[in-house]
Design a protein around this nucleic acid. Structure first.
Lengths: 208, 208, 208, 208
DNA sequence: AATGAATGAGACTTCATTCAT
DNA sequence: TATGAATGAAGTCTCATTCAT
């Protein structure tokens, strides 16, 4: 996971891991520090030796990851994509989807926390906007413009395109891997083809 | 709001309204019954005269609404849409979007609760799947098929289409009305045209 | 005691009494709320239904008393004294001493708290200065001037006189009733005569 | 300060100094050992290497000082006074007052601790009575008797005289240097003359 | 000797829930 | 039906003290 970080004692790593999982599973407010302690196998007081408060623990669980891991993680992928200079944007999408699936399923606990707690904690919101919103979104605009200039993507304001592409991918992953993992899904490849097909040509019949 | 229901005393309505707003604002676990009581202008004990427990209050806030209000609400809209038998699916989309905007902005508190608490309460999940998942999704499949048969929408498994259309609309509303209401947005009409355009023709250039 | 006040439930009175005694006995910081609860025969939570915090309890124990009881108490005595218009200031002193003895021994718990905690709590200090310092001191100056004008007390700045008289009385009571109650003391009357004698004529031999 | 004592490492002196100041400032019970450690610039554990417990630290802060420093300090002064064989007790008082002012203002932290914590710790009380009560009080009686025999001080039980003189001086210093240092005070010399005048001749008019 | 991570008892406080009025 | 005082379990957090390094 992301705790391979460094200068942390075993206990501290245990606390972070336990907190991450419990926050994801039950929500921040419904998780007690004594549960975290028990799961981490430490005394409750130990938690507060390292984190000033429960809130501080939440921010720690969420913040350095956001900064150190997710930021570079996403950026690295984007750079790969850009450097690879795919001949066609569809290849870009395909790479993107594959990568997002890995990312989301790998970091599902962390993402759940972010999504669940974001609305309730100003501090989290600031961090999220700071480290994802601005940075990543700008990169994505560049990508879209790149393929627009290559004449592969329709012209127009990139934000609307990003929203449509992004939400399509996101809702697919959400549906398949989080909400209804037990439903009967077709082969990954086929589903992805379908999404790219729809994104590329739209849902309208050509003759219109 | 939705409390115009019926056989509820003023106190009960007050409790439900207060609970709805506070749950939406701070989350279920972080809201105390005494806060609810204060906001509703009743004594703490009064809440428990009407609702067995705090959890019961959450379910009450969320469940009968889901059943009595949202179900019909959505269905009524869909029937309107279906009855209207739009000549073109784009008109259907347009009506759908307008309607969803109203619905979401009107019921933002309620929806926040559902989204936030869904993952943590088995009972809620069951209700949601029962009353929205199955019911609504089936209707939507019907709509898609209707326009597929009219030759306006590309053939293919409706679910993927629903996901793409739904998530596009949803992410637009989410972005504009919930996440970044203070950003500089263009005219609603233009934005909607853009979405429908993208949905219809896709993001790929035609000659491909 | 001072809890004969009013609109307080039995429990609340119990809490105040228990807190007063324990704070006096062990000091504020060394007294736990669970001890107070046990001594008062209530659940620990009950304390916090009535007092926002432990600090709030301290202020309550100390403040309204200072305002409602001690203020009038002292004032009433002073007025009695002033109204009585003693022929001689020695009679005033005698009355004063008798009264102070009663007051201090009656309110020993309360006074201990004030003396012990005053240095550590800004709020207390403010209250004390407000309600005793200003008010009482001014009254005392009036008394001194009264007897100065009658030609019974030496002229000069009243504050120094008040300090000497006050501290003599105070140190006598402190020694006899608080610090060394088990020592062998002479008859009260004799001791008081001695003090008044010393205060009146000083410690120097007359011929000087 | 008083820690120039001896065989103490820098660390130990730092701990004692930090503890003294913090105990004086916030009270014993409200001071944490970690605060002391931080202020002293040592690790938390180091305190317990030198002092068995927090209580032991308090006793150390207060005890050897009481024995080694204050005792001799006071005694030395008294001997000076006695050796000097002032012609007049007023000179003695003047020297005494000057000396007490220095002593109190120099050792204010230490004295605060003694005064504050004395009532709560049996051990402290014993030490105090042992090393000050008995010893010093006996010396003072001697001084009083000395001037009584010289015919300068009125005859009578010395204790009452000591109390009056002592408390007058004490209350002056307390008022001027501790409680209301920011008030408008007259010249030290004038104030002291006033006190000695009052102590010598009393507050009554001579003709009585 | 010194460190500081770890502990666990216990501090203060909150809160859902009960019950006499 | 409504109240709100009372409860006690549980929550967050502090702190003196221990111990491996």
């Amino acid at each position: 996971m992301f705790n391979d970080a460094d200068n942390l004692t075993e206990k501290q790593k245990g606390i972070l891991t336990a907190a991450t999982e419990l926050f994801a599973e039950k929500g921040y407010a419904a998780t007690s520090t004594s549960e975290i302690a028990k799961k981490a196998g430490v005394a409750e007081g130990t938690i507060f030796r390292h984190y000033k408060s429960k809130k501080d623990l939440l921010l720690t669980v969420v913040s350095p990851v956001m900064i150190k891991i997710i930021g570079p993680y996403i950026k690295k992928d984007l750079y790969n994509v850009l450097d690879a200079e795919f001949d066609h944007y569809e290849d870009f999408l395909r790479a993107m989807i594959a990568n997002r699936i890995n990312f989301i399923t790998d970091n599902i606990s962390f993402l759940r926390i972010v999504v669940q707690e974001l609305p309730f904690h100003e501090e989290l919101k600031n961090q999220a906007v700071e480290h994802i919103g601005k940075d990543i979104f700008e990169k994505l605009r560049g990508v879209i413009r790149y393929y627009q200039e290559k004449g592969q993507i329709v012209p127009g304001h990139p934000d609307a395109i990003i929203r449509m592409v992004g939400s399509s991918i996101f809702s697919y992953i959400l549906s398949r891997y989080v909400l209804f993992p037990e439903s009967a899904w077709e082969d990954e490849e086929i589903e992805i083809d379908r999404i790219i097909q729809l994104l590329s040509n739209g849902i309208g019949m050509i003759d219109e």
